[in-house]
Design a protein around this nucleic acid. Structure first.
Lengths: 345, 345
DNA sequence: TTTTAATCCGCAATCGATTGCGGAAATTTA
DNA sequence: TAAATTTCCGCAATCGATTGCGGATTAAAA
């Protein structure tokens, strides 16, 4: 049943006794073809079950209508949502998606990027892996004439299109909210500081403390606690301090916040009365824990759509040679839930 | 900075005063090239930042080393996990992934499949959309000489490679477990019966009842309750019956089970003592609800890897012309949690 | 009726990499 | 030293679709 031979425009041309070029024009709906022959070609194409060979077409045209996406993990909520958003917007424009995951490894990230360059994708969308340090491979993308868009985890020093969250602001609001709820010793679970997003979240935290004239206590800042287990470990350490915190801002992720909640629950510490907890990302489960967890929504699907549309806009404005690098910042939303509300009901 | 002209093998050939064919052979590490020239080519290629044009290569070779994936939604836990598994296995073999989402619409599913055919992918992996009825587009894939692999939601009548879960067995075990826990009136939230997986789950449910000589009560079987809201609605209806159920098997999804749990909680019905609840899929949140929800793990990442490896195995055995359609069935695992345990502690 | 313009269509080159074939040079064997 | 292999390389065709150019036919304008 495997018909190795697919029908090509030449098959159609031969059958109709016309030139392949005419077939091509007819199929691409050019207006330089007679209406009658166009109909005939379309009819014959359908009969022969013709499928355009996109490889050949792309090779000739020098563009592939394909967007490459590189994320740390496809199956992390945030990223899969962003991808879904990108897909939705791209599909409408007739673009395809090639997806790779870097597994948080720069080495694999580099390979993925190179593969995408080889594939002649028109655009590469990337959120950096956690151990990302030098950016030669990204420069490479640009040098190869491929549009590069960074999102969420971006390399600031690279002048590219970017879609980011206003992490600093979100973090500031979250901590301010906790302070207003009367929490006095707010701990921070911070992410790897080589990533800008985590630096920004820390800045937001520090600024909020500063604004309210609260001291910055180094022993309340714990590094790299971004999984549930690490969040739990950090919490045990924090709660066993001589002067433990009365709130924990898990700026790394909701998973970390979940670890905090579980440890508190095991230790019999009441949330939110004795301990406030705030996460980051608005994972689905934050709504259904008891108490529900205050967190920050990043509008991930919208972010994906924004990324794709940014590319399409850029393409449309290509002629007007203004090469102004555009950065779109999406304002995340603080979702105040039970885990930090102890003043009002 | 946009260097439209990428270096090709001809550029390298010209620079070294040799033929492009030799460059090609050197780059593909053929043994029909002098060791010295091979080194020289590789060095020059690196200097000129050469990137092989995969489009041209694929066109010539007639294969693209690309796998197309079509799923209802990329950002649903189960599917994103499967995709992650496929990606992992594919990456190791040097294959790329093109991902599409059908949004549960057959119309979009058809378009996705056609796009993938046009892209000349080597293999298409698909999990059918819910309103999938006729399968002409899938037959089309096969007729175009593309390997087709179905997973999870499959069309039984199509003879293709398949990777499925043993839904019937899992469902049977879940219901048996509930019966052994002393539940007498077990309701079923069933999924769209045009999808085989939901039919199988229903069969498992019925078989378990039969085995334990329990009556089948039509008023306890509710159709199409597969979101949280629909699950909640169904639960309200069920619990307001003259003789309400004492357990609900949300065979559609964990989200549905969550809806059940929330309604029960609002109505002051105790889980598991007054009402047993079992979900399906082992979503992350099932572990952290209170009580935690009994559910069924589908090993989704593993499923993805299995799908990809099935394809690679099939390719290796291509020469031995046995065209035996292979079906791999993965046995899901019942995870017994608090929501159904009322006998032992 | 003649000139001009518009409409269609075919020819052939092109995109970049691959590969069968044949020839030249180098190596081994007789 | 001559003959037989082996090694290495270049030529040119090929994959399938696209497109600039020019020619032919037809329609419109003079």
């Amino acid at each position: 049943m495997k018909s190795k031979k697919r029908t090509t425009i030449y098959d159609i041309a031969e059958k109709l006794n016309i030139a392949a070029s005419s077939v091509s024009r007819a199929l691409s709906n050019s207006n330089h073809v007679n209406e009658a022959t166009k109909k005939l070609v379309l009819k014959t194409a359908a009969e022969l079950n013709y499928k355009r060979n996109t490889l050949a077409s792309n090779l000739r045209k020098g563009k592939s209508k394909t967007i490459g996406v590189v994320v740390p993990f496809i199956n992390q909520n945030f990223f899969s949502n962003v991808i879904a958003g990108i897909e939705e917007a791209s599909y409408q424009k007739g673009y395809n998606l090639i997806i790779c995951q870097s597994n948080e490894l720069q080495s694999k990230e580099i390979k993925c990027v190179n593969t995408l360059i080889n594939q002649h994708v028109d655009c590469i969308v990337i959120s950096l892996s956690v151990d990302s340090s030098d950016h030669q491979h990204l420069q490479n993308v640009i040098d190869n004439g491929i549009e590069l868009i960074q999102f969420d985890r971006v390399a600031d020093e690279l002048e590219t299109l970017k879609v980011i969250n206003d992490n600093e602001q979100a973090s500031f609001e979250a901590v301010s909210h906790m302070i207003e709820q009367g929490y006095k010793r707010i701990a921070l679970l911070e992410g790897p500081q080589n990533l800008q997003i985590f630096r920004q979240r820390k800045v937001g935290y520090l600024n909020a403390l500063k604004k309210y004239d609260m001291p910055i206590l180094d022993e309340l800042i714990i590094e790299n606690a971004w999984t549930k287990e690490l969040g739990a470990n950090a919490t045990r350490k924090l709660l066993n301090l001589p002067e433990p915190p009365d709130a924990i801002f898990a700026s790394t992720s909701d998973f970390s916040a979940l670890g905090v909640l579980e440890v508190a629950s095991v230790m019999g510490i009441k949330v939110p009365s004795q301990l406030g907890i705030c996460g980051y990302s608005n994972e689905a489960f934050t709504e259904i824990t008891s108490p529900s967890i205050t967190t920050i929504d990043q509008f991930s699907v919208y972010m994906g759509k924004t990324v794709a549309n940014l590319y399409f806009q850029e393409m449309e404005n290509k002629d007007e040679t203004e090469v102004v690098p555009k950065i779109i910042s999406i304002k995340p939303k603080l979702l105040i839930r039970s885990s930090t509300q102890r003043k009002t009901v």
